[in-house]
């Protein structure tokens, strides 16, 4: 991947200059790319909330996205998102590491888990100050393999980042936003927990979203790879994952309608083959990996159209029975699948 820092567009103006007005994210008119109107839902948010999510899904930015992406599209866009973020941060020398669901994906196979719709990374306090001072509202232009046109990614810092207090509306300190689709990465800052430190817990750290950590569980960071790009991992990664998700999250190969194939090291959506019920269903797929819509779109049988419209919604693995009923694979699951599948 060829990374280019094409332009550093700095938007001052509205963010800090006008006293008496709420700080809010860059206005739609100034940052819009392909959309004609704003899909944000700012009226329903708290008045001093800086970032506003899209009205159709909380993991999209309504200034750039107008619809939820389909399963496979979303996977490739999210992968590009983290790849561009990690390489940009590597380039500017910003200390960042992956956390939460993204770290769990790293543990399983160094990739984003396909059912994830957002990504989580953390930065240190020094880094957020550095990014805010030099890289706020910068656009990073990337030419990605497989995409004909280049794409811009926006780094937007929440001006509340300098406030150490717990702030429910502004616990996200910055976002890395795909200006084509509206997908984004939440960036949070690991801070010193001053309350705990005043009570004698010298190594206590916190994040504004109320997560708590010990300094030595995060630092020194380990070097690894995520989605093919060098990435940093917290030192006690396994302990953090158990603490947050429990032991089963590190061992169970069935999760969120997906099955992990140990041989291929891949999460695959469940299909009728996992249940041996293919003869009771239309088609033998899983309602996720459907044939492209362009071919015979209107001539498609009813069950296929049903599956397509459902997949457009959220991309969960579904099937249509011979009686024409649409259902999710998870509903089919009366008891857990007991054996691993080693070949597919």
């Amino acid at each position: 991947m060829r990374a280019e820092l094409l332009s550093c567009v700095l938007f001052f103006g509205c963010v800090l200059a006008l006293p008496g007005l709420w700080k809010r994210d860059a206005p739609f008119e100034e940052v819009k790319t392909r959309l004609d109107w704003n899909h944000q839902d700012a009226e329903h948010d708290e008045p001093d909330k800086y970032f506003h999510e899209a009205n159709f899904h909380p993991h999209y930015d309504g200034r750039f996205g107008d619809k939820k992406l389909k399963y496979e599209e979303r996977m490739s866009h999210l992968a590009a998102l983290i790849q561009t973020y990690l390489s940009s941060m590597n380039d500017v020398g910003a200390e960042t590491w992956i956390m939460h669901g993204t770290l769990l994906g790293w543990w399983w196979n160094r990739q984003i888990m396909p059912w994830d719709t957002d990504l989580d990374v953390m930065v240190s306090e020094a880094t957020i100050h550095y990014l805010a001072e030099y890289y706020n509202m910068t656009l990073h232009h990337y030419h990605l393999p497989g995409l004909e046109t280049g794409r811009d990614y926006l780094l937007e810092i929440n001006p509340h980042y300098s406030n150490d207090e717990i702030d429910g509306a502004n616990h996200i300190d910055a976002r890395w936003i795909d200006t084509e689709t509206g997908l984004f990465i939440d960036i949070t800052t690991l801070r010193r927990n001053k309350t705990a430190q005043s009570h004698g817990e010298a190594d206590a750290m916190m994040v504004k979203d109320k997560h708590h950590y010990m300094y030595d569980d995060i630092f020194p960071l380990r070097a690894s790879v995520f989605e093919g790009i060098p990435a940093k991992i917290p030192f006690a990664y396994a302990e953090l994952l158990i603490e947050e998700y429990g032991e089963l999250a590190l061992s169970s190969v069935f999760y969120q309608n997906h099955r992990f194939q140990p041989e291929k090291q891949e999460w695959k959506p469940l299909s009728c083959r996992d249940y041996g019920t293919c003869d009771q269903l239309h088609g033998s797929g899983n309602g996720v990996n459907l044939p492209a819509e362009s071919e015979e779109s209107s001539a498609a049988p009813g069950w296929l159209q049903k599956l397509r419209s459902a997949a457009r919604e959220d991309g969960l693995p579904r099937a249509v029975g011979l009686d024409g009923k649409l259902f999710e694979y998870s509903k089919l699951l009366t008891r857990p699948i007991r054996s691993l599948r080693w070949s597919n």
Binding site: R222, S251, V253, Q265, L340
Partner: peptide, 18 residues
Amino acid sequence: LPSSVNGTYGLARGGDFD
């Protein structure tokens, strides 16, 4: 035994050793 839970420790890729 695989019959008790869906999966076990060691199926995921896990950490690195440099």
